[in-house]
Write a protein that binds this DNA or RNA. Structure first.
Length: 216
DNA sequence: CACATGATCGCCT
DNA sequence: GGCGATCATGTGG
């Protein structure tokens, strides 16, 4: 049925066809992914998250992210150094992908950051497809994965070694980036209020309640 | 728009 | 056994 399709889907929505190479976009370097996690979360707003399947490229422009700060962040899966098979990719060197399954039906994708051994990451919360795609198609972490066909089988992939999943540079003016607390982590005590969510204030694809969409 | 709820299941205690 | 780094739908203002 439809729901099962969403969970196991690895096929990108055809409306996301997009060739990053033809536009001359450049990939982020390994060094970039080793920088400060919060900086990276802000810096990849506007970047193109791309994937190749059957020799066809697909992609979407990131408009919303959240930073997860590892062992000291109660909202992070790696809080207090928790190290289980699921979370293991978070401990890899920056530039790897960490994908997890939640609520029995959705996947969420993260860019792992910092040197190996430090389990921090940036959650991709929303993106905009090319003109041909509906504005809300990737509005939310689960929808973003569903539309691009990203699932747990992609967890642990190296964006700088695996030719089929990549992140390309493209920036949004700092003045147009909004900041707020993170969504869906109210159980995390003090960490729930940390200002670690970043979004493109001009985008209609940003997810979450309207009241978190204004502040800066 | 805000808020509530059900769906659905792998992960961790 | 309980509970999510969610989403779609339904209700009421």
């Amino acid at each position: 049925m439809a729901i099962q399709k969403i969970r196991k889907n690895s096929v990108p929505d055809p409306r996301l066809r997009f060739d990053p190479q033809s536009l001359g976009l450049k990939q982020f370097s390994r060094e970039f992914f080793l920088l400060d996690t919060t900086h990276i979360a802000r810096a990849i707003i506007g970047a193109w998250f791309c994937r190749r399947r059957d020799n066809q490229w697909y992609g979407a422009r990131i408009v919303e992210t959240e930073a997860y700060l590892g062992s000291t962040d109660a909202a992070a899966h790696s809080f207090r150094g928790r190290r289980t098979p699921r979370v293991e990719p978070m401990y890899m060197e920056g530039g790897h992908l960490y994908v997890f399954f939640v609520y029995g039906m959705h996947c969420c994708a993260n860019m792992v950051t910092k040197p190996a051994g430090i389990a921090e990451a940036v959650l991709l919360r929303a993106a905009e497809g090319p003109e041909t795609a509906p504005v809300k198609l990737l509005s939310g972490p689960g929808k973003l994965c569903a539309a691009l066909g990203i699932n747990v089988a992609h967890s642990g992939l190296d964006l700088l070694a695996d030719a089929d999943v990549r992140l390309f540079q493209s920036r949004v003016e700092d003045a147009k980036i909004g900041i707020s607390k993170r969504i869906g982590v109210d159980y995390a005590g003090d960490a729930a209020a940390w200002p670690l969510r970043f979004f493109d204030m001009d985008s209609d694809a940003v997810s979450g309640p309207l009241k978190l969409r204004t502040p800066k």
